[in-house]
Write a protein that binds this DNA or RNA. Structure first.
Lengths: 254, 254
DNA sequence: TGATGCGTTGCAATATCTGCAACGACCATT
DNA sequence: AATGGTCGTTGCAGATATTGCAACGCATCA
């Protein structure tokens, strides 16, 4: 809606790919160098981009700290955290909390496994939306038409042989997840890693977040992991209760 | 330099304080509601702000994932990470990696303590710049005049009785740190937590990052923690070597 | 049902941004 | 040491995108 701002903001994802010099930015933006310069300067003043010693631009520290604050404002996260920690103490494996927003599902909290073999993931990182158990729960809760349109827009990378291959399969999986009220990812993202997940609901019953327990095959088999399901669900329900109690209807994700 | 962009970007820190409605944003920006609306819309299109179900705006998920990518591009982080993990395996305590940029020092990586009592911190969070051991190392490396001007601009909150009280004390501390080549924080931020830190240098000898080991009093005394200093320094030096070997002169922070 | 508050839209005025061209700094090459 | 090339930077005049206004629609609430 605002051309100038639109252009300026387009610089950010561009720099997220890696540092770039003025000319490069101008070219990819399709504007004159002088224009790019002025935009970059403005971004720089706000700390969103940083100028390295070789004069090239990259994303700045302010962006990182803003994102940090953004996460700390999420009410679910705050409420859920102690529950995640407790669950982690009980089961030992990695515990994740994720939310859905627009077209992304991302981890907003994590408690690391106590086992030496750990799964790679990072708070703030978008999750593999077509296979992750938490993503299935979050998308399964969307109204039918949205679910369909989202499913059709997605890419379906075959991370492993068990990855969801296409929109059809994904929609079926979502239907199942929606009905049973929990989800799994059995080697769909990484061959040797399994997850079980449960939804966290707001006062209106809608899913506002999802949590999961993940563990590699070498630590526990998928069957063993599934025995934790009741515990995971109980934890999620406890968070739901506390969350809906504390917040009227409004707030957070969707 | 660009008014529109400047205004748009000013919305971000404002929303970082918490969700706000259109009127609120317009007022704090000092512009007409319609203007604020258009700016917010543009930010929204880029996913930097999100509109909650109660119509209020808050920071969006895209911001978080951008920040994530920003960190993953930092070369030091990538090189340092395995070393941090190894150090954590050896000593068990929390290990941090931090960089300095403009007026902030922030953690860009962290390996959690294996002990149950953990220190609170979070990747991307700006550190307490006047007391943290890593901050001292990063600032101590600045040229004298910059060091002075930074020191004088800072606030000196008394987190504990041992916090650095003022610019003078801070500059003295920086001088000491600069000379000895390592730093500590003994209860300056939280009464019961101590840290030892060492600098990571680029090929030109300048400090590009700093790493620390932190542990609460209840786990090890300050004296015991200090015995880890040689190990921490060796680790930092190893990272320095690898980092300066791999990168000409340029790149990263300053 | 009327009133208040909030978000939204179309429009005309003008302040703001754009692209150009020229400049200066720096580097590499000869 | 001089030359050519690359890249970032600046001032300017024209063009265009942005602004604030006022009116509207839509809620909620009395």
């Amino acid at each position: 809606m605002s051309q100038t701002v639109d252009r300026a903001l387009s610089i950010l994802p561009l720099l997220a790919e890696g540092p770039a010099d003025l000319g490069g930015v101008a070219e990819r933006l399709g504007v004159h160098k002088s224009t790019a310069l002025r935009l970059l300067r403005t971004l720089h003043e706000h700390g969103l981009v940083y100028r390295q010693s070789d004069q090239r631009y990259r994303l700045g520290a302010r962006l990182i700290s803003l994102a940090q604050e953004a996460m700390e404002n999420l009410d679910v996260r705050e409420i859920a955290h102690p529950h995640l920690v407790r669950l982690n103490e009980q089961v030992g494996h990695t515990v994740h909390l994720a939310v859905h927003e627009e077209d992304e599902v991302l981890y907003i909290d994590k408690v690391e496994s106590r086992y030496p073999v750990r799964m790679y993931s990072r708070i703030g990182k978008p999750v593999a939306i077509t296979v992750a158990a938490v993503a299935k729960l979050l998308l399964a809760d969307l109204p039918e038409n949205e679910r369909r349109s989202v499913a059709e827009q997605l890419d379906y990378p075959m991370y492993t042989a068990r990855s969801t291959p296409n929109a059809d399969g994904f929609l079926k999986e979502l239907a199942k997840v929606r009905e049973q009220g929990w989800a799994t990812d059995l080697g769909g993202h990484e061959e040797s890693i399994n997850c079980v997940a449960a939804p966290i609901r707001g006062a209106d019953g809608r899913v506002v977040a999802a949590m999961s327990v993940s563990a590699p095959n070498v630590v526990v088999t998928a069957e063993e992991l599934l025995t934790l399901l009741p515990l995971v669900r109980r934890t999620a329900d406890a968070i739901s209760g506390e969350y809906s109690g504390r917040t009227p209807v409004k707030e957070v994700t969707a």
